[in-house]
Design a binder for these strands. Structure first.
Lengths: 197, 197
DNA sequence: GTCAATTTTGACAAAGCTGTCAAGAATAGA
DNA sequence: TCTATTCTTGACAGCTTTGTCAAAATTGAC
């Protein structure tokens, strides 16, 4: 290899992800990314071709990291504990930063028709993967016993509700309220022995 | 009054609303609005000053219409019927059009930090008004008896879940699935006599 | 019919964006 | 040390956008 890349690709994608996360795909310009990373715009185009390709690479890191967290959160065999941990993490994920950065999945999903086919496919896949993980975690006998519906539907409800939380975060910036709603949602979804008596 | 306005303001705001609804605030240009309405860009600036003011007027119509529908949907004293009607309407609202236009509230909420203070305040108010209507409807004795939590929290959950539906609509364009999830959500939120035995 | 206020029109300036490109700089390998 | 390849740099073209403005057109009121 002659003419070695001058920048640290790992750091670049990290900074790019942060920028896209803060502003969304459409509202982030290559100038923004260049400033955030310290890498010239021309170099970015040389290395990645266009904004979409760069976004997809950043989103890839985000996806892997997010799903890793979800897997970890769902290890507890008690579905109430598992879902509570999951929601706590999801809320933390979207309320971190100042100003809070929100949820990149949700933001990108909303931008979807205009963001292009490749990004659409990637976002869909992330949501599907997320749903699959939750469905799996809710498919244990212990979980089935407490669930008020079948695991697949329950997983869909959880995913949909987390997307709703992301929207409410944008409007009201109130992590406590998001946590409170999450707790209640889990309680409603899982009849945890306190109901049905 | 001398020099009368040449265009029908009612029709203009209607077309502007449709355009903003289809593309969102940021992605809609004044050129788009001009083309959709047949009114020259200069006239729009003369009449409304800037894009934000025009958007707020269009959003105002949208808000009034949406809340009117919600009020109507919630008249039924049976909370299950009321919420089912509400969800059916909300899903229809976001899946209409080709391509489907999605939910303007949700889209605008996601764009929020960048859309400006005035729009932020307006969107917040709409969500609060929506929440208040649902809370009221769920505060009847009949509803309280079936609810698995207090009416205020239940209303928050409903609103948040509808926002989640809007996000899922963008990603998967599947009205049937949205309806199915809505039904299950209502069933879970309201122990309708079939649970707890 | 005339006038004065208002709207319409089309051009304009200023800014921001994406993507391209040629010239210069850097470097691994011979 | 030399060279071929790759990366970097800064300028550029082309496009889109917002908002402004002066001149022309319109029209209600007198």
């Amino acid at each position: 290899m002659v003419g070695t890349r001058q920048f640290d690709e790992d750091a670049l994608l990290e900074a790019a992800l942060e920028t896209f996360w803060q502003n969304g795909f459409a509202a982030t310009s290559m100038i923004d990314v260049a400033e955030a990373t310290g890498v010239q715009r021309g170099s970015l185009y040389n290395a990645y071709g266009d904004k979409e390709r760069l976004f997809l690479l950043a989103f890839e890191r985000y996806s892997i990291r997010f799903l890793d967290f979800v897997r970890q959160a769902l290890v507890d065999p008690d579905p109430v504990v598992a879902l509570t941990t999951l929601f706590k993490g999801v809320v933390a994920n979207m309320t971190e930063g100042a100003p809070s950065r929100g949820c990149l999945t949700t933001r990108t999903a909303i931008e979807l028709p205009l963001a292009g086919k490749a990004i659409e496919a990637r976002v869909k896949r992330l949501i599907e993967d997320l749903t699959a993980l939750i469905r799996e975690a809710l498919s244990t006998p212990a979980a089935r016993r407490q669930l008020s519906c079948d695991p697949a539907m329950a997983a869909d409800l959880v995913v949909t509700f987390t997307r709703g939380l992301a929207v409410m975060e944008r409007a009201f910036h109130n992590p406590q309220h998001l946590d409170k709603m999450s707790k209640q949602f889990v309680r409603v979804l899982l009849l945890d022995g306190k109901r049905g008596r």
